[in-house]
Design a binder for these strands. Sequence first.
RNA 1: GGCGAGGUAGCAAAGUGGUAAUGCACUGGUCUGCAAAACCGGUAUGCGCGGGUUCAAUUCCCGCCCUCGCCUCCA
Length: 468
Amino acid sequence: MPALKLHDTLTRTDRETTPLDGKTLRFYCCGPTVYGPAHIGNFRTFVAQDVMRRVVEASGTPTLHVRNITDVDDKTIRDSQKAGQSLTSFTQGWTQKFHTDCAALNLLPPHIEPSAVAHITQQVAMIEKLIAGGHAYAAPDGSVYFRVSSFKDYGRLSHLEDRELRLGASEAASATDSDEYTKDSLTDFALWKARKPEDGENFWPSPWGEGRPGWHLECSAMILEYLGEDFDLHSGGVDLIFPHHENEIAQSCCSTHGHFAHHWMHVAHLMVDGGKMSKSIGNLYTLEDLAQRGYSAVEVRYVLISGHYRAPLNFTMHSLDSARQALQKLAKADKALAALSPALPEAKSAGPFEKAWETLLNDLNVPGAIGAVFAVLNKLKPAALSAEEATAARNGLHFMLQALGLTLPAIADEAATDVPAEIQALAQQRWDAKQAKDWAAADTLRKELEAAGWLIKDSKEGFTVVAK
RNA sequence: GGCGAGGUAGCAAAGUGGUAAUGCACUGGUCUGCAAAACCGGUAUGCGCGGGUUCAAUUCCCGCCCUCGCCUCCA
């Protein structure tokens, strides 16, 4: 099967995702900082990465997926103290919540999920190498900084070369932070942060004194530990291109002989109601917020993949309603095929959905692929299919659903709901009135039932009552 | 200011140098006592604006406008 072609941020071209070792696609995703519930914007990135992994695996290439947990930084320390908890118990709680949300969104768990705190040793070792190589220096206060000027390729990923010549407003501001006085250059970034009173109990020993690792370093150290000096692909949100990924490249390339990531995948941001998400506007949703409004995680997943991962996606409540209907349509199509092909579907190849699959292989064009799936379903006449054709169609449909990570919901009308006896009785009365051709009475009863939240579906032989 | 992404029907969103997928919503028909469901149809002479190249541009080029992101620790 052909390999997935994926856009590469560094070369700005679409490149095939062929494993360096010829066997397994090894990739790293920047994981969450666990100081609160992740919001749907965070999840857009994780869902896009999940689809990427599923497509690679569906095309026959196994993967090694590493995603970290950032469990020490300013925010985790600050909020754990606010909560009166130890950093460990605080971050463990939010890590669990993250896992619950991931499972609800049908995200495949990474093969390895290292935590920053559990890899302090590796981070210290990397700093020592950087200092030895002249790429880093210890400041008088015990912090250690990376010397950006020592790495000539700095800025290649973000195309922000010669940054010192283009100091923006935020940099002028940061120069006044007391923190920054100890750096040789404004662009140098912290590898190790000296212990400060507000860190509380959260510090570790190091050759430069007590402190904690800088944020950028953890990914480099854990990648070296689990994926080595060279690996296939690195992914994250677009906002991480600079400085985080730029810094990772600098740290890793200067402390090893490898080339670090050979392919970079970045996911565009999610917008809400046409604007950016922010807590102050109140449009920053978590899965729980949406569950309270009655939307399932699968519906959220559908919305999150319904735009191309490299284009901004506008999230609205209407798009959730739209997703619900679309999923219903898929579930009904599957049911119609299942009537002809009741065996459990084997999702091995795309079959009649070949075009949709090819679309997906072209830089993960999920919306294009979903459109192609519907186009095929719209033309498919289950009644005219042989059992073999129906089986091929059903297998192909499930192949696509599996690649997209979509699970089919129960068909709404048939959702197993208990109809209360009094509702059932009213419905029976209406049926009797209808049989007696007393249309007025029948309609009145139907309206009553509707007001109570129940719909009547008539057929020749009888009627069924379903929740509205 | 620099770098990057984007502006396609009411909403969302694909796509292409030759006359605009798909989902939702809306709407016509079949069915029904009427509905619902289901099924069969319809809905952008138009793809931010202005030029240019071309037999032909939404698709290429130039200019402009607007939105969003990043410019030191936000997916």
